[in-house]
Amino acid sequence: MPVAIEARGLVKRYGEFAAVDGLSVAVDEGEVLGFLGPNGAGKTTSIRMLAGLTRPSAGEVWIQGKRVDGDGRARRGLVGLCPQNLVVWEHLTCTENLLFLADMYAVRRRESVKSARALIERLHLDERADILAGKLSGGMKRRLNLALALIHDPPIIVLDEPSAGLDPQSRIVVHDFIQDLGATQGKTVILTTHEMDVADRLSKRVAIIDRGKLRVIDSPERLKNTVGEGDTVVLRLKDAGRAEEAARAAAAVEGVRGAVAVSREVRFQSLNAVARLREVYGALEKLGIEVEDASMRKNTLEDVFIQLTGRALREEAVQ
């Protein structure tokens, strides 16, 4: 798959402080890339440089195989940005907002009207299409905010926390829409979010950035299987008196960590626990210990995220 947008060694310094420090990441055409990081990690600065709103201190941005200059002129129309803040023209209606921005992208009126209608319908804004944006609810404004990033049909879309603060219904609408962008429309999407489950579900790959540096980039599945404490397994034994013995047997299996006995249960952690369970069961069988029930909490992307970025509040750390 050809690369749609690529950052090569991007650096942004503010005095001595490097907000982004040598970021290199390539996003394929049609890929949804989850771009994660704690507050102040450099996500927004990175996507502003990719979009052309912030001039890098060093490094390059390549779009569709061409290097683009710092002030973003060369990428005009290629990148659609949905900013974190609600950026709408409050004194224009939803439709007027979309048509005005389409005009600024020199989209033909017939096409822009069609696109505006489709976006309004797809994002469930039809009943409010002719209401001033300033009178919309927060959720509707956020959906309009998203629609504005797409009105000119850009091949690359950067979404900065597009579903922040939305109610569950609106989140479903927005998430389905984003999923559709990558899967059906073949758009390249860079998605920043603090909702790890959303990134896990929507992203083909996830990049985690911290203190301006890229910590890891891989598929969510692989990250969950390779980073962190792993899945948590709980085995309930028939015989409570053998829990300590069972815990020792489990701990002896390679890849199993933190095996403990708690009442009738044995708990342990392991990366890719499903693959380890067979060996643990085998070890218990050899000892004649019977398992009455088993449950597993899969390693989550949030676990991966915490493992890589730590538990400290990041705003304090940045200070």
């Binding site: 979009a51 990148v79 950026v87 921005l101 992208y105």
Partner: peptide, 17 residues
Amino acid sequence: EGGNLERLKLSRMTTAD
């Protein structure tokens, strides 16, 4: 402040426009 101007900066709108 609202970010609208940044939104326009990404478009094909020129300074003269």
